[in-house]
Structures are given as structure tokens and as C-alpha cells.
Amino acid sequence: EWFLLTTVPVTSAEQAADILRWYRLRWRIEDWHRVLKSGCKIDELGHHSVERLERAIAIRMVIAWRVMLMTLLGREAPELPAELLFSDTELRVLGDYAQSRRRERPDRLADAVREIAILGGYLNRNTDPPPGHQLIWHGYTRLASMSFAYALRDEIE
């Protein structure tokens, strides 16, 4: 038995169910803030103008949203095509990386997200739980650098 304290008036079972749904979303919001603060280092921004700070925060908010989306869709909709969330360059990088480790090129979203998690330090053992946001943001940072390098290489050739 547990209690949920709220300042919202609850006079019916339907209202109570709504409050519980809101409360469940709170944890997803907490995760997003954690990705913003720990993964995107939003607390370390030290821009000299409000405009630059606002732009930097806005960009990091989108990155944190993308990390969250990768993590959640990779778990809840694993069969979706990887092209849904990743650019051609990102998929080329992930495919080349997977092949260099004797794994299949990722076609499904779950496979691409797993490769990103592996880039972030995920061991991918049978007994390991699905990768979380932290492994994904570490891997996504590496993927972004590798994709930038691929794009530069393509420009030179």
C-alpha cells in the first residue's frame, strides 16, 4: 500500500488515475533533466550573453530529447527501421563499426541503438539489461565525432 500526496483535488477514481499518469511521466522528465545536466553538461555553460546561453541550451535540449527518444524507441519499438532516427552518414558509421567487430550492419532501430550503446561502453552480454540513457549519450557523443570525420573524408574525396 502506498500514498501519493498531491495538491490537485481528487474527487473521483478517474481523477486519481489522471494524477497517477502524471506522476509516471515525472520520472521521464527527471531522466531528461539528468541527460541535460550530466550528459549535455548544461550546468557548465558559461556564455557571456543571454542570447548565446539561450541558443546553447536550446541545442542541448534537442540533443537530450534525441538521446531519450533513441533509448525509449529502441526498447519499445525495436523493429522500426533505423533510418527513422539516423542519417545516412550515421548509419554508415554504425554499419562499418559493427562490421569491424564482426557484427551485422544495423537495419532495425534496436540494432542501431545497441551499436551506439556499445560505442558508449555497453558490454552487450546476454544477461545485461537494456542500455540506459547514460550509455546512449556516451555512445552518441562518439557517433557524432565519427560521423563528422566521415563527412570530412567524403568532402575531401
Rank of each mutant, 00 (worst) to 15 (best):
E104A: 10
I29S: 11
T6C: 06
E30W: 09
K41I: 00
S87Y: 08
L91D: 02
H33T: 04
H47Y: 14
A77E: 14
P106I: 00
F86M: 04
V10S: 06
S100P: 07
E157F: 11
E30H: 09
D88K: 14
F86H: 02
L119I: 02
R52K: 11
K41A: 11
R75K: 14
P81M: 06
R60C: 07
E115D: 11
L69R: 12
L152R: 13
Q99R: 15
T141F: 03
L84Q: 10
R103M: 12
L119S: 01
R142D: 08
A64L: 07
R28L: 13
W22N: 11
A98K: 06
S145Y: 07
E51C: 00
P129C: 04
R103S: 09
R60T: 07
R92C: 00
H48N: 14
N124T: 04
V35D: 04
V113T: 05
A13C: 05
G95D: 01
R66Q: 12
H47Q: 12
G95L: 01
R108G: 02
R153K: 13
E14M: 03
L20Y: 09
T7S: 15
L53F: 07
D96N: 14
A112M: 06
R28G: 14
T141Y: 07
I57E: 01
M70R: 08
L69T: 12
A64T: 06
Q134T: 08
V113F: 02
G46K: 15
I29G: 09
D107A: 13
Q15A: 13
R101T: 11
L119E: 03
Y23G: 01
I118H: 01
E90L: 00
Q99G: 06
V8Q: 13
N124W: 07
G95N: 01
V62Q: 11
M70T: 03
Y23A: 09
E90Q: 15
I136D: 00
V62I: 14
E1A: 14
L36P: 01
D18E: 15
R21K: 12
R21G: 02
I57V: 15
L135N: 06
R28C: 08
T6Q: 06
D31R: 05
A98T: 07
F148Y: 14
A151E: 15
H33G: 04
W65S: 12
L5Y: 15
R28D: 15
R55M: 08
A117Y: 03
E14N: 06
R114L: 13
R52Y: 02
E79V: 04
Q134H: 08
L84S: 09
L4R: 04
S38F: 03
E51D: 12
T141W: 05
Y97K: 05
